[in-house]
Amino acid sequence: MFTFVSGLLIGIFVSLIGGGGAALYLGVLTSQVGLPTAVAVPTSLIVALPALFFGFLTQMRVKNVNFHIGNQMIIAAIPGIIIGTVSAKFIPQNLYNWIVGSIFLVMGGMVLYKFFRNTDKTQTSQKRWMASLFGLLSGLMVGIGGLSGGATTAAGLAILGLTAVEAAGTATYVLTCMSAISLIGHLFTSTFAWQAGLVIMLGAILGSVITPLVIRYLDLNKVNKVLTPFLGLLIIYFGIKMFI
């Protein structure tokens, strides 16, 4: 029961911020289920993907997905995933943590700056290359470290001018595609704990489906005023954690 509730809460949480939640799933699988890390990492990917997919379908139904920007990020992410996967074994973990942590700190700061300055002067041409840049960064992080591109994707979308709700919905779409690509490689090289991941997966799917349906009945301006600074602070927190 605790595992199901954990999956439900994670599904709700990642639907709000537009992340993949792999790190959270990984924590439950290792600390609560007792899986070894080598098995928990690919299993967390299996757990996260269905929740992302069903969350994406719900976000699409309530029209929170910007496919134009999302597609630009996905196209740019594909070479990033390939490059990251190939180069991962040559990058020391400490160096990877510092690189990712620095990116998180900068992007979290940009989200907060943009929110408190309340400006959106980014031109269409700038948004195009910025979307590609954020997609490439997310792809590199997915390829190197698994499903760790969620914060970069959500932050990039917020910086591009999407509301927190739109950023979360579009990030769900982008991460679903990137996770599916990453999963293909793991299917041939990794061991999965299917039974252990099933319960948390069901909870996560439920959480990812009900959250967008509930949010649309709320005052979106008030939701954005809470979620956007929360997203920025959360990304900064993730960045600090990478240095610890």
Score class of each variant (00 low, 15 high):
Val5Leu: 15
Gly7Asn: 13
Leu8Ala: 14
Leu9Met: 15
Gly11Val: 01
Leu16Lys: 10
Ile17Glu: 03
Gly18Gln: 04
Gly21Met: 10
Ala22Gly: 04
Ala23Trp: 04
Ala23Asn: 07
Leu24Trp: 04
Tyr25Leu: 01
Tyr25Ala: 07
Leu26Thr: 02
Leu29Trp: 13
Thr30Ala: 08
Ser31His: 07
Ser31Ile: 10
Ser31Trp: 02
Gln32Val: 11
Val33Met: 01
Val33Ala: 10
Gly34Ile: 04
Gly34Gln: 08
Leu35Trp: 14
Pro36Asp: 15
Thr37Ala: 05
Ala38Tyr: 10
Ala38Pro: 03
Ala38Val: 05
Pro42Leu: 12
Thr43Asp: 13
Leu45Phe: 14
Ala48Trp: 00
Leu49Lys: 06
Ala51Lys: 03
Phe53Asp: 05
Phe54Glu: 02
Phe54Ile: 09
Phe56Val: 08
Phe56Cys: 08
Phe56Asp: 13
Thr58Trp: 02
Thr58Ala: 14
Thr58Gly: 10
Gln59Trp: 05
Gln59Val: 03
Arg61Ser: 12
Lys63Asp: 13
Asn64Tyr: 15
Val65Thr: 13
Asn66Cys: 08
Ile69Asn: 01
Ile69Val: 15
Gly70Met: 00
Asn71Leu: 00
Met73Trp: 08
Met73Ser: 07
Met73Lys: 01
Ile74Cys: 00
Ile75Asn: 08
Ala77Trp: 01
Pro79Met: 13
Ile82Gly: 08
Ile83Lys: 02
Thr85Lys: 06
Val86Leu: 14
Gln93Tyr: 10
Gln93Cys: 04
Asn94Tyr: 06
Tyr96Trp: 12
Tyr96Pro: 03
Asn97Ala: 10
Trp98Asn: 03
Trp98Gln: 10
Ile99Leu: 09
Val100Ala: 09
Ile103Cys: 12
Ile103Asn: 11
Leu105Phe: 13
Met107Cys: 11
Met107Trp: 14
Met110Thr: 10
Met110Trp: 04
Tyr113Ser: 12
Tyr113Pro: 03
Phe115Cys: 05
Phe115Lys: 10
Asn118Cys: 06
Thr119Gly: 01
Asp120Pro: 06
Lys121Ala: 14
Thr124Asp: 06
Ala131Arg: 03
Ser132Asn: 08
Phe134Gly: 12
Phe134Val: 03
Leu136Ala: 09
Gly139His: 15
Leu140Arg: 06
Leu140Tyr: 15
Met141Arg: 03
Ile144Tyr: 13
Leu147Trp: 03
Leu147Lys: 01
Ser148His: 11
Gly149Ser: 13
Gly150Phe: 05
Ala154Gln: 11
Gly156Pro: 15
Ala158Met: 04
Leu160Met: 11
Leu162Gln: 12
Leu162Met: 13
Leu162Glu: 09
Thr163Ser: 14
Ala164Glu: 15
Val165Ser: 06
Glu166Gln: 15
Thr170Val: 14
Ala171Gln: 10
Thr172Ser: 12
Ser182Met: 04
Ile184Pro: 03
Gly185Trp: 00
His186Met: 01
Phe188Ser: 09
Thr191Asp: 07
Ala193Lys: 03
Ala193Trp: 11
Trp194Thr: 13
Trp194Glu: 14
Gly197Asn: 01
Ile200Met: 08
Ile200His: 08
Leu202Trp: 07
Leu202Phe: 08
Gly203Ala: 11
Ile205Gly: 02
Ile205Arg: 00
Leu206Lys: 02
Ser208Gly: 09
Asp219Tyr: 06
Asn221Cys: 00
Asn221Gln: 07
Lys225His: 09
Val226Thr: 11
Leu227Pro: 05
Pro229His: 02
Gly232Asn: 11
Gly232Cys: 13
Leu233Asn: 12
Leu234Ala: 14
